[in-house]
């Protein structure tokens, strides 16, 4: 028998409101706002209030999936990342680096987004870097 709250940052937009995940016996059952957190100060939007619902959802992907002959099959991270690197490499050599675009996320840290633009510009060689808020 166990009930506690784990404070975390809302996974949705870039505001960074804190929220509490209500956990009963290891199961996430709800959200409470973080009343003493300086960003949201006890408020959340509808997405934050429902942030618990996807974490343990049965439809959630738990491994990468690779499409083969029209069907998806489970794959390891290593295999999936290698496939992506291969494909990016072949697109770049066939069509040039500007055939690739990179979409960054509001939910990443500054450092992660910095790395991502570095990767696009220095590794792939394109300025096609944009942000998820404009999708």
């Amino acid at each position: 028998m166990d009930y506690s709250n784990t404070q975390t940052i809302c996974p949705f937009c870039g505001c960074g409101c804190a929220l509490n995940l209500e956990v009963v016996d290891g199961e996430i059952v709800g959200v409470l706002p973080a009343n003493d957190h300086p960003v949201g100060r006890g408020s959340l939007c509808i997405k934050g209030w429902n942030a618990h619902s996807f974490v343990q959802h049965e439809d959630r992907l738990k491994t990468p999936l690779i499409r083969e002959d029209g069907d998806l099959r489970e794959a390891s991270w290593e295999e999936a990342l290698e496939l992506v690197a291969d494909k990016l490499g072949s697109i770049k050599s066939e069509h040039g680096p500007d055939a690739v675009g990179v979409l960054a996320s509001a939910k990443c840290t500054n450092e992660e987004n910095y790395l991502l633009q570095k990767f696009s510009r220095a590794v792939i060689g394109t300025n096609n870097v944009d942000h998820c808020a404009r999708l």
């Binding site: 166990d2 009930y3 506690s4 784990t6 404070q7 409470l32 973080a34 003493d36 006890g42």
Partner: peptide, 27 residues
Amino acid sequence: RKTDQGTAPTLFQEGDDVSQLVLEPRY
């Protein structure tokens, strides 16, 4: 319960550290 993560309701049980029990903010 107040921890370095913030304050939220919790179920205190025997053996838990009640020095973490606080009275604010309201929930």
